[in-house]
């Protein structure tokens, strides 16, 4: 299935900003992190349609996943 992955902040280093990628059915957010060589503790926030999701979340064809390392400000 096709998943659009958007990366932010330091996750973009040596990777990409946005890419449409092919993943097998029942791929989870965690699987996508592994495919990008991002360790779980590096993950700050994962969002789909503006909602926070956990690494166990199972992706659906056509979804966009936004991944952020731990960041803050304010």
């Amino acid at each position: 299935m096709k998943i659009t992955v958007k990366l932010f902040a330091g996750f973009r280093d040596n990777r990409f900003k946005m890419a449409e990628q092919d993943y097998p059915e029942a791929t989870t957010v965690g699987d996508i992190l592994s495919s990008l060589n991002i360790e779980r503790p590096e993950l700050g926030v994962a969002l789909i349609n503006g909602r926070h999701v956990l690494p166990e979340h199972v992706m659906v064809d056509g979804q966009t996943l936004s991944l952020f390392p731990k960041v803050g400000g304010g």
Binding site: F8, A9, G10, E42, G44, V45, F68, P69, K70, V71, G72, G73, G74
Partner: peptide, 18 residues
């Protein structure tokens, strides 16, 4: 990671995208 890496690199403006 926020005070040691994120804030020094991108500043508080890292929040726009999130």
């Amino acid at each position: 990671p926020v005070t040691g890496e994120g804030l020094p690199t991108y500043g508080t403006n890292v929040l726009i995208n999130i």
